[in-house]
Design a protein around this nucleic acid. Structure first.
Lengths: 342, 342
DNA sequence: CTGAAAGCGCTTACAG
DNA sequence: CTGAAAGCGCTTACAG
């Protein structure tokens, strides 16, 4: 038993070793090997030992394709994420990964098809029934063209979903959260409050926008279209741009509600470049509470989303469905975190 | 042809449709269906049309497992990433995704096994020969226990690798980059320069540490162990902690070289909390040039790594190997970007 | 408890 | 150009 041999799952011929090799080595049938490695049926202690020894000696691992083909499941879950660069998504994916892993599943990550790169089409993994289920953080607007002939795979939406569609999802109440944020600004005496929105193909962007308007209306503050800037995405740079436009207004806002922390940070950057102090000259409230929010200066006043828990909840919901449970949705709690920026 | 039917890849019985259903519908053998969907052999125009019509009508997609089982490849690549939260990794993964997708591959993302959670073991996907290859950003130290009986899958390391091992990798020259950073500080007149290091199970952390020492030595500045703080990771919080310790020194540094931007940002936060001005009281140089580096205030002076290109290069290297090419490594260029923090 | 055999859904020589 | 059949590596009734 050379060191080399025990270090490799491959026999000298270079071919991966299969169940029949194990069976041969142990002097049993492949059915028996299957039974011991899966503990699916009783096997005599003696036989089991022989098989286990052979498995160990050969370094055998069941072939994932053959197994999935016969079992009809892959234990692979697709996670659709629109933008790796926004920490909101990475934190959420962490939550997904944490629960999914505990149940023996792996994650296939795919950037969501995106208006910017429409040629991508929907991820092939989806069509080819590679995955047992999907968790999507993507805009269904972007997914729409692809959804037509989507195979019937269990699906749960996370944070972003389709309203009144019965689509199972884990999310906060985006509208209420936005309302809370803007109400806070109103309570602090602001009346000229701008909205720094994001791509409204996202429901969360539309709902936060609606929450902004609802807060203003409730306070009897007339809406002013000039105070609404919708960015194409959530990059810092887009936040800077939009903030610049706000500053150029005849009568600029005294506060801005940004629908994402990254946008808020970009805006603050632009304000400071223009010589404005935050929050003294202009207050900024963000959304998400990414890790950076408390490190950035000024530290962000923001709506905290339970990012990790959102991902974990979506994963649990999907796992439930996979186990035969009924589709279910979960609304998690948000919270306003007051720090320095407003 | 009901709307419902055309929207689903499933026939009314709920079972996914297979190649034999298509063959039946088109009145040909499954071999012929296979030939037209793969364009693997000439098929008469007439037959092809019938098959294509059947495929379209049924919404047929080849089963990924059966295909992988017979073809012996999955077109799935594993990407091992240590920490989703560090933007360096997300940017790099973007680069990987961009080239990989163009070649018809999908990515399976796995958090690398990690000292913090040793129970995870190595990703199962690896063992079960699910993936055709792997791109690792993880520490091989952490992977070590798992690497023993790793199947013989093509492997390329990205940024983090094993020195003098012949392991194919895409990386910058970490040592030289660190030397450049520290030399810059020396040129600006600093002599008490601290190192804010990271988990030294990473080669990049060790090499940047070595570059720091080399620069000091070359300038005839004696090393001072008190000025070296090694953080367990790269979270903002760890940077703050380490910086706090530096401040508590009898004679604190006038400059610090942090081996990651996130650490640098955490350090700056701590310095400012303690009432220090950056760079006036203490200069800080970071490493990576994450998107935030130019937005943070003060904007970070840092070593720019071509993150996207690093990922793309690693992907290309892996694709080359998969296509039968020889293992190859690539060293990409770094650059010192001078902004405000030093 | 154990084995021979069918079957999962493909691809690919082998004949014709 | 086309089809019947073998084979990829498993799991799981069906017998014994």
């Amino acid at each position: 038993m050379s060191e080399k041999r025990s270090l490799s799952a491959l026999p000298s011929n270079g071919k991966a070793i299969s169940i029949s090799a194990v069976a041969e080595q142990a002097g049993v049938s492949i059915a028996t090997v299957s039974r011991v490695i899966n503990a699916s049926k009783p096997v005599s202690a003696d036989t089991r030992e022989r098989v286990e020894a052979a498995v160990a000696a050969l370094g055998y691992r069941a072939n994932a394709f053959a197994r999935s083909l016969t079992r009809g499941e892959s234990r692979l879950l697709l996670v659709l994420v629109p933008d790796f660069a926004n920490p909101f998504y990475s934190e959420t994916v962490k939550g997904v990964a944490s629960v999914v892993r505990r149940h023996g599943y792996n994650i296939v990550l795919a950037g969501a098809p995106d208006a910017q790169a429409p040629d991508q089409g929907a991820p092939d993994a989806l069509y080819s029934r590679l995955v047992d289920g999907v968790i999507s953080l993507a805009s269904f607007h972007d997914l729409q063209p692809a959804m037509g002939d989507m195979p019937d795979v269990p699906w749960v939406a996370c944070s972003e979903f389709v309203e009144d569609s019965g689509m199972p999802h884990a999310s906060i109440d985006h509208g209420q959260a936005a309302l809370d944020a803007v109400q806070y600004l109103i309570n602090r005496g602001h009346r000229r409050i701008a909205l720094l929105g994001a791509d409204e193909s996202y429901l969360w962007a539309r709902q936060r926008h609606a929450g902004y308007e609802a807060a203003l209306k409730r306070a009897g503050i007339p809406l002013d279209a000039h105070l609404v800037r919708i960015a194409r995405g959530t990059d810092y740079g887009l936040g800077m741009e939009a903030a610049g436009a706000l500053l150029a207004l005849e009568s600029p806002p005294s506060a801005v509600f940004a629908v994402s922390d990254t946008l808020a940070i970009g805006a603050i950057k632009a304000f400071r470049r223009a010589g404005r102090r935050v929050p003294n000259d202009i207050a900024v409230v963000g959304f998400d509470n990414i890790p950076l929010a408390q490190v950035f200066e000024p530290a962000l006043t923001t709506i905290a989303q339970p990012m990790f828990e959102l991902g974990a909840a979506a994963a649990s919901l999907l796992l439930e469905r996979l186990a035969g449970g009924h589709p279910r949705s979960l609304t998690l709690q948000h919270a306003l975190v007051v720090r320095e920026s407003a």
